[in-house]
């Protein structure tokens, strides 16, 4: 399984903080394409969004980053701490 986490505005926009999905995606991009099928909000947030930030297992990642069973994938907007 994969753990998928959504933070900040992404969590609110998509209506969930986290979920488990079968590990049937080779890359983050494959996962994003599958999630985008869920509807307009998902497509806007995950595919047509220059601000999308990605992390895999707590490290900064990209669309082409490979993923495997047991990984934690997170989606969030640009950070604004400090």
């Amino acid at each position: 399984m994969l753990s998928i986490l959504y933070f900040a505005s992404f969590r609110e926009l998509l209506g969930q903080a986290q979920e488990q999905l079968p590990a049937e995606f080779q890359t983050v991009e494959c996962l994003l394409n599958a999630l985008a099928q869920r509807g307009e909000a998902w497509q806007q947030a995950l595919l047509n969004n220059q601000n999308l930030q990605i992390a895999v297992n707590h490290d900064v990642a990209h669309r082409h980053t490979p993923i495997k069973a047991g990984d934690e994938v997170a989606f969030f907007p640009p950070v604004t701490g400090g």
Binding site: F7, A8, S9, N51, A55, F76, P77, P78, V79, T80, G81, G82
Partner: peptide
């Protein structure tokens, strides 16, 4: 620019908004 924190602010009228980078 690198640590994952996000700020949300509430205005006096109760309106909430995420702070942009």
């Amino acid at each position: 620019t690198n640590a994952p924190f996000w700020k949300k602010e509430t205005l006096p009228d109760g309106f909430e908004r995420w702070v942009d980078a």
